[in-house]
Amino acid sequence: MSVKLRVNGQAHELEVDPETPLLWVLRDHLGLSGTKYGCGVAQCGACTVHVDGAPRRACVAPIGSLAGRQVTTIEGASGPHAEAVRATWEGLDVPQCGYCQAGQVMSAIALLERVPTPSDQDIDHAMSGNICRCATYVRIRRAIHSAAASIGGQAGQAEASEAEEER
C-alpha cells in the first residue's frame, strides 16, 4: 500500500506495510535518525514528533493512519519556539547523553506553543511522558522557564525569574 504524507515540509509517497510505525519509516526508510526508539510502547517519549503540529509518539503511530498529515521531526522543527528551546537547551547544556533529548525538545516546543508561560505543574504534565535516564529533569525545567521568558516578554520573564529565585 502506498501512503502519502509530508515530513518536514517534503512530500513523500511510501510503499510500506500500513501498520509500520512512523518511527521506523522515519529512521529506516527516510534516513531521519534524529527521532529515537526507546521503548516501542509510548512509555518513554524518545520518538516524539509533531503530527499536524501536535506531539505524537512515532513508535505507536501506524503510517497508514497518517495519510495526508504533516509530520515534523527534530530535524525540521522551526519557528520562534523551536529556536528558543534550542537556545536555552544550549545555554544551560541541558542534555547529557542526548538520546532522549529530541523527544524532550519536541515536547517542550509543543508546550510553549500552547502555554506561553508554563507553570511548574504545566511542565510536569506536559513532560511526564519523556524519560531521561541521565535524569536531566532539573535542567529541562529550568530551560523551559527560560525559553518561555525569552519568547514571552514580561509575563514570561516575571515567572522565570520567580522560578530562578526559588532555586
Binding site: L32, S33, P95, Q101
Partner: peptide
C-alpha cells in the same frame, strides 16, 4: 555535543 543534539 549539545548543539548537534538539539538539531537531531
Amino acid at each position: 555535543t549539545v548543539p548537534k543534539i538539539v538539531r537531531g
